[in-house]
Amino acid sequence: MAVHAHPDDESSKGAATAARYAAEGAEVLVLTCTGGERGDVLNPAFEVPAGHEFESLAGKRAVRRLEMAAAAQALGVQQHWLGFVDSGLPEGDPLPPLPDDAFARLPLDVAAAPVVEAVRRFRPHVITTYDPSGGYPHPDHIYTHTVSMEAWEAAGDASRYVVGGGAEPWTPLKLYYGHGFSLARLRAVHEAMEGQGLESPFGSWIESRAAREIPERQVTTRVRVDQYFPQRDAALVAHASQIDPDGFFFAVPRDVEADVWPWEEYELAASRVPTHPGEDDLFAGIRGTEAAR
């Protein structure tokens, strides 16, 4: 189960991993906390689909649902909406308050309840989510971390989050934070592109992170996924309102990426099974055990 803040996050963060495990026969579910209603249009070539409008929150939500369905199909995964409203990314100094209906303003028990219910119904062995920073300071990403951790702790406790429908308590076994753009990855790809005389999109990013002395989070697990870059890319393109097919996500030639960085990276944040350093599989310690049944 991959818990994400907005539609398109599942395609830009851990998408090839999801596609790999789905292709290998695992059940993979993407939980999408919000409808992405307050996301800006980031693709200059985007055209609103026929029969839709993109001016209202409801109109944007409907289009983003179409995009999400196409992305999920490209990855071969299941997907479930939690139905919360995008908080938007506040900008300004001082920052404005979040909208009254924002996901990140909800009480924890309200926001986490459907995540707990989804865990109990889907019964995942592994959950992936964001680290405490959210990966970047969007309030929905930070709150997605918070509700994911609450579900990790509460889903197996029958006394907490008593919901209807008969979903029995379920205790997941491993929880990971996904790391999409580690400094090691940025440098490896940057140096490879410069070595081939190509313009790298990462030079200023590396310099900025180094100057700000942003600490690197620990990477415990690298999952090889280069065979699934096509599925990831198809899912990205499906989010036509958010992803520019001529933009940042496609600036690195795929043969260069596959040669120098064929992995997606994760940090094992919690485990209820024995683990070992240098994992290359999110299901390490679970496969072939009684717990996997």
Rank of each mutant, 00 (worst) to 15 (best):
E53W: 06
F54W: 15
F54N: 13
F54A: 10
E55D: 15
E55Q: 09
E55G: 09
S56M: 11
L57G: 00
L57I: 07
L57K: 06
L57W: 06
A58L: 15
G59I: 03
K60Q: 13
K60S: 04
A62P: 03
R64A: 00
E67M: 01
E67S: 01
E67G: 01
M68S: 08
M68W: 15
A69M: 06
A72S: 06
Q73N: 03
Q78A: 08
Q79S: 10
H80T: 07
W81F: 13
G83F: 12
G83Q: 12
F84Y: 14
F84L: 14
V85M: 12
D86T: 03
G88N: 01
G88V: 01
G88Q: 03
L89M: 15
P90V: 02
P90S: 05
E91R: 10
E91T: 07
G92E: 12
D93Y: 15
L95A: 12
L95T: 05
P97M: 09
P99N: 14
P99K: 11
A102L: 13
F103K: 13
R105A: 10
R105F: 12
L106R: 13
P107F: 04
L108I: 12
L108G: 07
L108Y: 14
L108K: 13
L108C: 07
D109P: 00
V110Q: 14
A111D: 03
A113F: 14
P114T: 10
V115H: 07
V115L: 11
E117D: 13
E117T: 08
A118W: 02
A118M: 09
V119G: 01
V119S: 01
F122C: 08
R123E: 09
H125N: 06
V126T: 07
I127P: 01
T129W: 05
D131R: 11
P132V: 05
G134N: 13
Y136A: 05
Y136I: 07
Y136K: 03
H138G: 01
H138T: 02
H138V: 03
P139N: 13
H141E: 07
